[in-house]
Design a protein around this nucleic acid. Structure first.
Lengths: 147, 147
DNA sequence: CTACTTGCAAATAATTTGCATGCGA
DNA sequence: TCGCATGCAAATTATTTGCAAGTAG
């Protein structure tokens, strides 16, 4: 089946977390998502099929998935965090439209290994991650609102 | 006097905003700050001298300063936004310690003009800004908690 | 004087937590 | 069975907004 899914489930199991239907739904939703999803987004999608799924379960499970490094947290400056599943070998960042709020992935990552090593060495700082988002206005909004 | 301060005041004036003591205090606080400040940080510092300064005034004025490009908004993944004054010619980013929450500025910006132009062209995306933060553990915390 | 501002309080919005019940291993 | 998980509701935290009173220009 899906390798990402299997590996996530395996990691959960190994750390003593139980494989509940809710957890699986959250994973499935993130896997199927076209882009980063907010907790509300995730909840809404699952609630269509499981009306008694609660928001806090999403929050709690996202926290677990973050802890295990299965998902990443992104901030698009609109007051809510968004999450996306980490597909190995597909490191990327986002163009975030400040007008419509939609985001698009871009493959470029300007933060190269050399710079990382230099900073780690010079500052004795252990780097665990980085965030890089590009803000602006997308083609559609520029056209629509004459930006 | 302080050039940054003067230019900020001038911009406010030109846009029809009034130069209230509250606004000046907020600017002074940001100018004197050693790093990005949260709204609460700013409020606390001013409240020592002006006990009836309210939080919402800080929020409202930060919004104005952001609008005019006088300050930048930063997100350090801890649930609150932080702000810092834009000193011309001193573009930089931050090392954010996930243990103690403190940040340190680094001069490097990996996002070069060429990449910006390429993205703008290829995606027809108008870039207005970007955020780049490096997360991890600082030297002090690594020592203290044996990370 | 007059429009922009402020302070207060109440309203939102996002996220967290306590607790009794439920369910995977 | 046993401990992690869940759902519900209440609590927190960050931020926004309505409104009457205040003040810069």
């Amino acid at each position: 089946m899906n390798l990402v899914h299997e590996s996530a489930i395996e990691q959960l199991r190994q750390k003593g977390y139980k494989i509940t239907p809710q957890r699986q739904e959250i994973l499935k939703t993130l896997e199927a998502a076209p882009g980063p999803q907010s907790v509300e987004d995730i909840h809404r999608q699952i609630a269509e099929r499981y009306p008694n799924m609660s928001m806090d379960t999403v929050y709690r499970n996202i926290a677990v998935l973050l802890e295990l490094g299965i998902v990443s947290k992104l901030n698009f400056q609109d007051g809510k965090n968004r999450f996306e599943i980490n597909c190995a070998g597909k490191h990327h960042h986002h163009l975030v439209c400040l007008t419509c709020g939609l985001s698009e992935a871009v493959e470029i990552c300007p933060f190269n290994t050399l710079d990382q090593q230099r900073i780690a060495r010079e500052k004795k700082f252990e780097i665990t991650g980085h965030s890089f988002e590009i803000f602006g206005h997308c083609a559609k909004c520029r056209e629509k609102y004459k930006l």
